[in-house]
C-alpha cells in the first residue's frame, strides 16, 4: 500500500525506526522540559538541517507545518493577549519542530519497517501470555482488507447514487458496515481452516 515514505539513501533513511522514534521522544521531552525560546530555535535549525541531510526539499518540511498554520496564528494571538509575544513564539516554534520531526520520521521510514520494528518490540509480551501472532495477523488482515473494503464502500456508493443517495451517511454507512460484518464470518472460517 502507498505510504508517505519518500525514497532515499541518506543516513536518516538507513537509521533503524527505533532510534528515530527515540530521537523524536527525546526532542519532545527536552523542548517541553526546557521552556526556552533560543533552545527551540536551535532545535528548529537542527530539524531543518536534518531535512537537508535526508535529501528532502524545503517544501516537504513546509507541508508538515501547513495544516497547523491557522492554529499557530490563533495560539500566537491568544498568547500575545494573555502573556507575551515571546511566549507565543516559543509555543509556535516548539510546535513546528515536533511536527517537522514527526514528519521526518514518516518521510524517511517505510511503514513496513515500522511494523516490523513494532512486532519485534512486542515479542517479549509473548512471555506475558499475549499471543503476538494474533497481533501480526490483525495487522496483515487490515492491510489486506483496506482495498477490499474500499471497493465495497465504492460499490455501495454507486448503488446508492442510482437512488440519489450518494451523499447520505446512512445510505453509505449501514450497507457498508453490514457487508463488512457478514464477510468476517467466512474470513475467520478460512483462517481457522488453514490451521491458525
Amino acid at each position: 500500500m502507498l505510504d508517505l515514505y519518500v525514497e532515499g539513501r541518506s543516513a536518516l533513511h538507513r537509521l533503524g525506526p527505533g532510534w528515530k522514534i527515540l530521537g523524536l521522544a527525546f526532542s519532545g521531552t527536552v523542548l517541553f522540559a526546557v521552556d526556552h525560546v533560543w533552545l527551540s530555535i536551535l532545535w528548529l535549525a537542527i530539524s531543518l538541517t536534518l531535512y537537508a541531510v535526508a535529501g528532502l526539499p524545503l517544501w516537504r518540511a513546509w507541508r508538515q507545518i501547513r495544516p497547523a498554520l491557522w492554529l499557530f496564528a490563533l495560539i500566537f494571538v491568544v498568547q500575545v493577549l494573555l502573556h507575551s509575544w515571546q511566549l507565543g513564539l516559543l509555543v509556535i516554534i516548539r510546535f513546528a519542530v515536533l511536527l517537522l520531526l514527526a514528519g521526518l520520521l514518516t518521510l524517511t521510514t517505510r511503514s513496513s519497517d515500522m511494523i516490523d520494528g513494532l512486532e519485534a518490540g512486542m515479542r517479549p509480551l509473548h512471555r506475558l501470555g499475549v499471543r503476538t501472532e494474533s497481533i501480526s495477523l490483525a495487522i496483515s488482515l487490515t492491510f489486506r482488507f483496506i482495498p477490499v473494503l474500499t471497493s465495497v464502500v465504492h460499490e455501495v456508493r454507486e448503488a446508492q447514487s442510482a437512488r440519489g443517495l450518494e451523499r447520505s451517511v446512512f445510505a453509505i454507512a449501514i450497507p457498508s458496515i453490514i457487508r463488512t460484518l457478514r464477510m468476517s464470518e467466512e474470513i475467520s472460517d478460512a483462517i481457522d481452516a488453514r490451521g491458525f
Partner: peptide, 22 residues
Amino acid sequence: GRKVRRRVGFVFQNPDNQIVFP
C-alpha cells in the same frame, strides 16, 4: 479438530474472503 484440518483443505466460494494477506 487440528488433525482433521491438516488432512482436509477447504476452498471457499469467494476468494476475497479467503485470501488473508496483502
